[in-house]
Design a protein around this nucleic acid. Sequence first.
DNA 1: AAAAACTTTTGCAACGTTGCAACTGCAAAC
DNA 2: GTTTGCAGTTGCAACGTTGCAAAAGTTTTT
Lengths: 337, 337
Amino acid sequence: MADRGEKRATLKTVAELTGLSLSTVSLSLRGGNNLKQETRDKVEAAARQVGYVPNRAGVRLRTGRTNVLALVLAADVNVLDYTRQLIQGIGAHVQGTAFHLSVIPEFQTSHPLASVRYILENRSADGVILTNTSARDPRVAFLMEAGIPFVSHGRTKFERSHAYLDFDAEAFVDLAVMRLIQTGRRKILLAAVDNGTTNYELIESDFRRIVADKGLDGEVGGSAAQLSVAARARAFGHELAARRDMPDGIVCNNELAALSIISGLQDKAMVLGRDYDLVCKQNTEILPTLYPKMDTVAEDLVASGARLAELLIDRVDGAEVAQLQVLQQPIMRWRST
Amino acid sequence: MADRGEKRATLKTVAELTGLSLSTVSLSLRGGNNLKQETRDKVEAAARQVGYVPNRAGVRLRTGRTNVLALVLAADVNVLDYTRQLIQGIGAHVQGTAFHLSVIPEFQTSHPLASVRYILENRSADGVILTNTSARDPRVAFLMEAGIPFVSHGRTKFERSHAYLDFDAEAFVDLAVMRLIQTGRRKILLAAVDNGTTNYELIESDFRRIVADKGLDGEVGGSAAQLSVAARARAFGHELAARRDMPDGIVCNNELAALSIISGLQDKAMVLGRDYDLVCKQNTEILPTLYPKMDTVAEDLVASGARLAELLIDRVDGAEVAQLQVLQQPIMRWRST
DNA sequence: AAAAACTTTTGCAACGTTGCAACTGCAAAC
DNA sequence: GTTTGCAGTTGCAACGTTGCAAAAGTTTTT
């Protein structure tokens, strides 16, 4: 559609304006350090004057570098506000670099490798951010095999190590359980949504460990099928309330599930903070909005996004994976005393 | 990083394999219709055999076409789950086309035109999807001026028309108010978050209209500052409850605000469904999760995303803007009877 | 049997960039 | 006064694609 008159400036424009050769201009603009300072200044000035911006297609064709980071998103998996916060973080970091952010949506119905295959086929990114990472995630295996730089949000259990950022599940569970103990609870239920991620596995195994360590009456309850659908999670709350040995402390990894369970318990006259306490991983302001006195453990997804982008760019620039493994620390939000 | 051996196939590979010229192969692969069927089959077969995928940089350099759609996202504005659903919709539609989805995050602190200027400077997309559109949105003006195809999620009030998809504010307000009337409510409050969008303006003006038409006791209350922060919205609920003439029907456009107001009213012993009713625009499952009997009016953001992508691609392909204006219809979710 | 008309295929140049090998000056060394 | 060395600059080719004008091949018309 209508291109506003004047052609855009290329290296050639700048070369003609300065009387230098294409090569010199190109070199200079990329900081060629055996050029005369005078020359560099001249090029710099001319480039600014004509508003030169490198043509990405030209660069990409010549160098193979796309200057694109691909974010592989499970578009139909809903952890409230996950997508927005992650993108906010990545976006904030990517801003000011040469990189663009490209989103490759993934669907539960599509082939697990569809997204990464697509990226490889089209050579459409210099690096990939994977979300929803599972213990033996085939996408991770694929990317390692293909030699495409990537960082996963979530650890795996592969021998070969790779760049990742993961929420510190152990720290989260420890904080949550200790908090419940502190408020006098001893019959602790882990009602966490098993979304197939390594992070869930770690939460569960650490829960079992700490419960044993502290000699608590611990229990892992609620299947994914139960907890990931609001109505069923609410029914699960009803079940809990009906039990003679109802747990008095609940640890949850998902806000929507927590809300449903609380509502279910409330339906049966079980009051949060009186009959039981619940500590949930917090990603939004919903929980504190509804229950201002509730304790939560927050995951800073904006920070995670920014860090993921940073790790990936380092990786693209050749950093060693051993240096690119981060555990994102949970943030205590104890409201009451 | 390590390129798995074999070079990737290009047109040249296919040309050599078939014994045809580059031009013929190129033409054929793009459906050149004055080629012999036999030739086309041969090319087709060879291309498949070597796994030919067009090099995007090559195409882009030659034709100027990027095959990228840019989604401009207000990354720090939080309408729960908006980002994910929109991306899911866009992604689902874009899947199977030649287009990629690129996300340009926008921040409240950044210059309003930063995102669109960036897109123009880098020629980084064939078309743009704008979100959070305001009545005289400078980004819309900019894109029209620059002649870049775009579609806005939300109408504007510019003379010159452009492609858009907007939630039908009038239909939403009508449905909500009529429902409240039907449940016997007459003192109606519009407590909608003024996020600066045209959509908010339309909601407000239509509310005033219908309230006058029906001879209701209507009121517009709650500033953006009050309603967009959970604690303040809750306090707003307290204020409402303290009034002698407390409204008995509330219309809300934002789930988080609705939750906070309900909580605030609840703090003061005002019970939803007994002392008052509330109808909210619904984008997630939170409201029905917490209040299964609550009436809502749903906005299907996944469908909106898909439609936005469709409109934009049509626009890029030269369709007239007059054909590309859509009002997304609200979906009634009357739970009780 | 040659000319005309049509169908099918091709060579070439260009899009904007960068890396390399080679070139130009010019001062220092012999 | 020639050679060597070095800093600074340049020409060329290539990355993969497509559009155009022209060539080659085939059929129809005269």
